[in-house]
């Protein structure tokens, strides 16, 4: 289910899966109230994923600048890199939890 690729490709894969989740939850739980709640949660998630992606792009650019000698601000680069890494790891865990929640709901006998 997961696409192994670079960090950026993984972000896209995650967004795709979460959109999947959103669409499927709309289909299988037609009650309006629940759908509303799920939509806003998904929007939060989408925004978070975009932010993680931006962080990664920034960190990559800073790292390249350090490697080729253009900007040798080491602590800034390391902080940006750590921030991106932590954001990414957290997003992976959030995505796992969201999938778990979805699967648990699917298991519920109706």
């Amino acid at each position: 289910m997961s696409t192994i690729g670079s960090g950026f490709k993984f972000n896209d894969a995650m967004m795709g899966q979460l959109h999947d989740l959103k669409d499927r939850s709309k289909m299988e739980m037609p009650s309006g109230g629940k759908t509303e709640g799920k939509t806003s949660f998904m929007d939060h998630l989408n925004a978070a994923i975009k932010e993680v992606n931006t962080d990664q792009v920034t960190a990559d650019k800073k790292a390249t600048d350090l490697a080729n000698g253009k900007d040798t601000n080491i602590h800034e680069t390391m902080l940006a890199s750590s921030e991106a890494e932590l954001g990414f790891n957290m997003m992976v865990q959030v995505r796992n939890k969201a999938l778990q929640a979805y699967q648990e709901i699917m298991r519920m006998p109706v």
Binding site: S6, G7, A63, A67, S81, E85, N89, V92, N96, Q100
Partner: peptide
């Protein structure tokens, strides 16, 4: 530079290890 490369490799390892759960 080595540290930054290690971070990238670490991210990939994490994604490979944890991306298939859920």
């Amino acid at each position: 530079t080595v540290e930054l490369i290690n971070k990238k490799i670490g991210t990939l390892k994490y994604a490979i290890a944890n991306g298939g759960n859920g």
